[in-house]
Amino acid sequence: MRLSDVTCSECGAGFRRLELWSLAGQKGEYRCPACNSSVEVFDGTKLIAYRLTIEPSVRSIVKAMRG
Rank of each mutant, 00 (worst) to 15 (best):
M1P: 03
M1I: 02
M1T: 07
M1Y: 03
R2H: 06
R2I: 10
R2L: 08
L3I: 13
L3C: 03
L3N: 06
S4D: 03
S4F: 03
D5R: 06
D5N: 14
D5E: 06
V6I: 09
V6N: 00
T7M: 07
T7I: 08
T7E: 02
T7P: 10
C8P: 04
C8G: 03
C8W: 02
S9G: 09
S9I: 01
S9F: 11
E10C: 10
E10Q: 04
E10D: 00
C11V: 04
G12K: 06
G12S: 04
G12T: 00
G12C: 01
A13K: 05
G14L: 01
F15I: 03
R16M: 09
R16F: 12
R17Y: 13
R17P: 08
L18S: 10
L18Q: 05
L18I: 13
L20F: 06
W21V: 01
W21P: 00
W21H: 08
S22A: 15
S22K: 14
L23I: 02
L23E: 08
A24S: 10
A24T: 05
A24G: 03
G25S: 14
K27E: 14
G28K: 07
G28W: 11
G28A: 15
G28D: 05
G28N: 11
E29Y: 05
E29G: 11
E29N: 05
Y30G: 09
Y30A: 10
R31C: 15
R31A: 15
R31W: 13
C32V: 06
C32P: 08
C32A: 07
P33Y: 05
P33D: 04
P33S: 04
P33C: 11
A34M: 06
A34L: 04
N36I: 06
S37E: 05
S38K: 07
S38A: 15
S38W: 08
V39D: 01
V39E: 00
V39Y: 01
E40K: 09
V41Y: 01
V41G: 08
V41D: 01
V41Q: 02
F42V: 00
F42G: 05
D43Q: 06
D43E: 05
D43S: 12
G44V: 08
T45H: 14
K46S: 10
I48Y: 09
I48V: 14
I48E: 11
A49K: 12
Y50L: 04
Y50W: 07
Y50T: 02
Y50V: 05
Y50A: 07
Y50D: 02
R51I: 15
R51V: 15
T53V: 15
I54A: 14
I54S: 13
P56A: 12
P56M: 09
P56H: 11
S57W: 02
S57K: 11
V58R: 11
V58G: 13
V58W: 00
R59L: 14
R59N: 12
R59D: 13
S60E: 15
I61P: 10
I61W: 10
I61Q: 14
I61G: 09
V62L: 10
V62Q: 03
V62T: 01
K63W: 07
K63R: 08
K63N: 08
K63S: 07
A64W: 03
A64V: 10
M65Y: 01
M65N: 04
R66M: 12
G67P: 00
G67V: 15
G67L: 14
